[in-house]
Each structure stands twice: as C-alpha cells, then as structure tokens.
Amino acid sequence: MQSTPLKEYFQEPLPTEQSELLTQFYRAYTAWIDDGAPERIIFHRNRGLCGNLRIWALSVGMNLLGDEYQAIRSEMYGQFRSRYMDGLHPFNDSLNEFNHEADTRTCHQNLQRIKWARRHAE
C-alpha cells in the first residue's frame, strides 16, 4: 500500500470513530495551544502528543499500567499507523529533528502536530 501524504490527509474525512477519552485529550491539548502553550503541569512544550497524552492521563487520574490508558495509547498509535506515520516521531522527518524540537522546547509549535490535534479534537 502507498502511504497518504500528511497534507492530503487533512483534506480527507477522518477515517474512523475515535473514543471520547482520546477526543477529550485532543481538545485539552488544542485548548492549551490556543492559550499560548503556557508552562504548566499538565502539558509540556518539550513533549510530543504521546508524551503529553501520558501526562494528561496522569492528571485525570488514570493508571498508566491500567487498561483505560493502554487503550487510548494504542488508539493514538493506531491512528498514526493507519496513516503510515512513524509511531515514534510522526510529525518529524527524523528522530534528530524531534529531539531538536524537544531540546528547544518547541514541540508545541510543530504545525503538523497542531493540525493533527485540531483535526482529532473535532
């Protein structure tokens, strides 16, 4: 199968239903972005969506070893895989690029990540 470029992905309808919990995460994340991505306990500028999902899950009382967290984590990774995206750094061309974003605390400014989160917050 041929992969769908991310640009084209944003022009297509969402491929499948998404859990309410993962939708809540994407909504909270985009609200944080819209608020200027202030440094706070829940979300971090030096983390991508997966890292921020983990932090958010803890903030809402989820056990990271529990079924609920594992399900939304798997769901997010499944979303990436369904678009033939790398599960470790889906919005970057390389791990080095992601690490640079993390080191400079600019992960929250990655336009592809923002578009993805907004699209899934709908």
Rank of each mutant, 00 (worst) to 15 (best):
L6V: 13
L111E: 02
A28Y: 05
A28R: 05
S74Y: 07
Q24G: 04
G78E: 12
Y29Q: 02
E12W: 05
R45P: 02
E20I: 09
Q18H: 02
R40L: 11
P90C: 09
N110T: 11
F43I: 09
R113I: 02
I33G: 00
S59F: 12
L64T: 10
I55E: 07
D86R: 14
Q18A: 02
F80L: 08
C50S: 12
F98E: 03
L49M: 14
D103Y: 06
S19H: 10
Q70F: 06
L58Y: 02
M62P: 01
G48D: 11
L111Y: 02
W32V: 03
N46A: 15
W56P: 05
G61S: 06
R81Y: 03
L49K: 03
E17G: 13
E68R: 14
Q2H: 03
Y9E: 05
L21N: 12
W56F: 12
L21K: 13
N99D: 11
P90E: 05
R47C: 14
P90R: 01
L14F: 03
L65P: 00
L64H: 06
R81A: 10
Y69N: 01
L22W: 12
E68T: 14
L53Y: 07
G87M: 10
D86H: 15
T106V: 05
A102H: 00
T23W: 01
F10M: 09
T16A: 15
Y84K: 06
A102T: 07
R81D: 09
I33K: 03
G36M: 13
I42N: 00
D35M: 01
R119F: 03
D67T: 08
T104M: 04
I33S: 01
F80D: 04
G51Q: 08
K7N: 08
R40D: 13
G78D: 14
E101C: 09
T106C: 04
Q112L: 15
S94C: 07
Y77T: 10
G36K: 02
I114G: 00
I55C: 12
I55L: 11
R73T: 00
N96Y: 07
T104A: 06
E17Y: 05
Q11G: 08
R105K: 11
R113V: 04
N63L: 03
Q11L: 12
T23K: 15
E101A: 06
T23H: 09
F98C: 01
N52P: 08
F43P: 01
Q18I: 14
G51T: 13
T104C: 08
A121W: 08
A31M: 06
L6I: 15
L6G: 00
L95Q: 13
Q109A: 02
E75Q: 10
H89G: 02
P90T: 11
Q70I: 14
N99G: 01
E75Y: 04
D86M: 15
